[in-house]
Design a protein around this nucleic acid. Structure first.
Lengths: 119, 119
DNA sequence: ATCGCACCTGGAGCGCACTCCAGGTCAATC
DNA sequence: GATTGACCTGGAGTGCGCTCCAGGTGCGAT
């Protein structure tokens, strides 16, 4: 079972070291293991979880909601229905987000086309 | 040439009154016309411009860049090539945004599917 | 042994985009 | 003529999500 240094995790997840510490501090990450010198050594699971976090963050989930999700995960398998619910609601918002973005994109492209006719 | 009261513009654009005043203060909106009592009366053009702003904001353009765009618009027709450039760069970012969102959406949906197999 | 470097901590600070507030004006309505 | 309600101003405050800082530890390389 391999472990990762902070620098490796920064590299793999794209989160800054400060952000990793911040996530641990607020409880989005469970207390990370340490080596003898007190330095963090992230587990495979930590890195996997950070991948999930990355994905939720990138789709605009606020930290407060990620915390709720993290709690559900910690509580064990009997919360899986709740997790599905949470993720489905989020998926709905992502869909809306994409739809809105696509619509606005159309407007921007029209604008560009219009400018092209003017030049 | 009809004009709009603040309340009407709030209704039509979805920006709050405070936001409208803020946009005027920072120069994103040119100084809005006033009635005898000093109250704002927005022109058709103001409302149209706010539509553009809405669209750029919703697609994640930072205010600083919208200000640059507003400046170009004010400078007149000889800046149209620059405006096209700015909007095209923005369009590129919007495309990336949609692509990333779509990819992450796939991940989320996988996660949901996985949870469904577990329950 | 001394240096550089990756890492540690608690806590302060920051950038963005608003949002709220206190105190005031004016016009129309009861 | 008192009240109500939409609006005004300048400036302070807020929430989010980090990001930075000072001061310190421990380890491997020169």
């Amino acid at each position: 079972m391999s472990v990762y240094t902070p620098a490796e995790v920064v590299e793999e997840t794209g989160f800054s070291l400060d952000t990793l510490r911040y996530y641990e501090k607020i409880g989005l990450l469970e207390p990370v293991g340490r080596n003898a010198a007190g330095q963090r050594r992230f587990s495979e699971d930590d890195v996997g979880w950070l991948g999930t976090i990355r994905c939720l963050r990138d789709t605009g989930m606020p930290i407060a909601e990620m915390l709720r999700f993290a709690e559900l995960v910690r509580e064990g398998d009997h919360t899986i229905a709740d997790r599905i619910k949470l993720l489905e609601e989020h998926d709905g918002r992502v869909r809306e987000q994409i739809a809105r973005l696509t619509e606005r994109q159309g407007y921007i492209r029209n604008k560009i086309s219009y400018y092209r006719t003017v030049v």
